[in-house]
């Protein structure tokens, strides 16, 4: 039987599907979060070098990975929306951006709070922290461009272009910042590779990464559903859904 992939590309059917998926992902992410935090705080030993401060790694690294990964996913969906003119993929890209920006902010915040005890200052111009900051600007640029354009179709397409241009520039920015960082005051004290991690630390962190994946999927689907409602407010299926009180 041929799977009709395009059945879920229409906002109406996707809305119902997403509605069923959100609770599942919320449940999984909460479970993973509890397990991850438990492993992180109770099972993992205190680090001989950094004492307890390293426990920030359990949110800093997942947040940093998520922020970069979500930008690429956002650019992917934006590209699909631009190429195939499918409104739903562009709505999905718009739904991803705030969560990605939030993870970037968390990565910067936890990075600073971790840097203070370890490097003595809140902000070190380490190559990765700097490119994380620039990634934050890219997110803000995408969101403010979309906010400035009233017509949703143009906002989607313009956002898609700036997201694609941004994703092409991410490696360039990363390597130029890397080069710039080693150029200036030599390789500053940078956490170039995670300290030799005890297995429990690693598993704790990986569980937290999975938890942040599930959380992102849940939140993005939730926001996507709201965006669908906002954009499809004139359609019949929304009115009929509202009558049934199943919005």
């Amino acid at each position: 039987m041929a799977i009709n992939w395009f059945k879920y590309s229409s906002p109406a059917s996707f809305y119902l599907l997403a509605g069923k998926m959100v609770p599942v992902f919320v449940f999984i992410s909460v479970m993973l979060l509890i397990v991850g935090l438990y492993v992180g705080f109770f099972v993992a030993p205190t680090d001989f070098q950094q004492g307890e401060a390293y426990r920030i790694i359990f949110i800093h690294v997942p947040a940093a990975w998520m922020s970069m990964f979500l930008y690429v996913v956002m650019a992917f969906w934006a590209g699909i929306g631009l190429a195939f003119n499918t409104r739903l993929s562009s709505m999905f890209a718009t739904a991803i951006a705030p969560t990605g920006a939030m993870f970037t902010f968390i990565a910067l915040w936890t990075g600073a709070l971790w840097g203070k005890p370890m490097w003595g200052t809140w902000w070190v111009w380490d190559a990765r922290l700097t490119s994380e900051l620039i990634l934050f600007f890219l997110y803000i640029g995408f969101m403010s461009l979309q906010a400035a354009i009233d017509d949703p179709r143009r906002a989607d397409k313009a956002g898609a272009i700036i997201a694609l241009v941004g994703v092409i520039n991410i490696p360039i920015i990363y390597f130029s910042v890397q080069w710039w960082n080693t150029l200036h005051q030599g390789a500053s004290v940078s956490l170039n590779q995670a300290p030799a991690m005890a297995t429990t630390m690693l598993t704790g962190m990986l569980i937290m990464v999975l938890a942040s994946w599930m959380y992102s999927i849940a939140v993005i689907l939730k926001r996507a559903r709201v965006i669908i409602l906002e954009r499809e407010s004139h359609t019949a299926w929304v009115a009929e859904l509202h009558k049934k009180g199943a919005i």
Partner: peptide, 27 residues
């Protein structure tokens, strides 16, 4: 081109374009 005809376009251009200028600035 992206911010053509938008109100507050001037500020928006700088927000969009400055991150992309950074490699040129660095080198």
């Amino acid at each position: 081109a992206l911010t053509l005809g938008l109100r507050g376009g001037g500020v928006l251009v700088s927000l969009l374009v400055l991150p992309l200028y950074i490699p040129v600035l660095i080198f």
